[in-house]
């Protein structure tokens, strides 16, 4: 009888644990709607933003809920993704002021934003110790999706430039910064 009570209590405890983690994961995904709103405000088409924001929100919630190295990578990924998210919008204003072509400015800003985001992720991943590559890969994927919401306004060239920038920033920093054991 006591054993059965223990099992029931363990099941309740597990349910409480999982639901608390899920609630926390949903709260932790708050930057996604903010990023989506910002991307639309900066000029990306709402349909592009929705296509990127929904899977990003789901991925962020699932990863934080599961936890571990990949769960820890979500917040740095979202934070790093802010650079390529807002850079093209700011560059667009500059392009108008300088009378230069939007495509050139936007694509360049995406590459620069990607490099900045990649460097931040590479540095943070090197602090992670074991599982650093897993952390870096998850954070890069999250940052890429976040950044793509902003770089989509520069078309495929902007998104590709940002991805190249992310890789160019993350890999060398991650490889060169001494690891924390």
């Amino acid at each position: 009888m006591e054993h059965r009570d223990d099992l029931a209590l363990a099941r309740r405890a597990r349910l409480v644990y999982e639901s608390a983690r899920l609630r926390r994961a949903i709260v932790r995904a708050w930057p996604v709607p903010l990023a989506a709103w910002l991307a639309v405000r900066l000029g990306t088409s709402p349909s592009h933003v929705v296509v990127l924001a929904i899977p990003l929100a789901i991925a962020a919630i699932v990863l934080v809920w599961r936890g571990g190295v990949t769960g820890r990578a979500v917040a740095p990924g979202l934070a790093a993704g802010a650079a390529p998210l807002i850079a093209p919008g700011l560059a667009m204003d500059c392009a108008v002021a300088c009378s230069a072509s939007c495509q050139t400015w936007c694509a360049t800003s995406c590459v620069v934003g990607g490099i900045l985001a990649g460097s931040l992720i590479g540095y943070r991943a090197s602090r992670e110790g074991h599982g650093g590559w897993q952390f870096a890969a998850t954070a890069v994927a999250i940052a890429a999706t976040t950044g793509a919401m902003g770089c989509a306004m520069a078309g495929a060239m902007g998104v590709t430039g940002m991805l190249i920038g992310l890789a160019a920033g993350a890999v060398p920093v991650f490889a060169l910064v001494p690891r924390r054991s």
Partner: peptide, 13 residues
């Protein structure tokens, strides 16, 4: 004690 145990798991994160 049951409530406490559930609270421990609720705040485990």
């Amino acid at each position: 004690a049951q409530q406490a145990l559930l609270a421990v798991f609720e705040h485990a994160h």
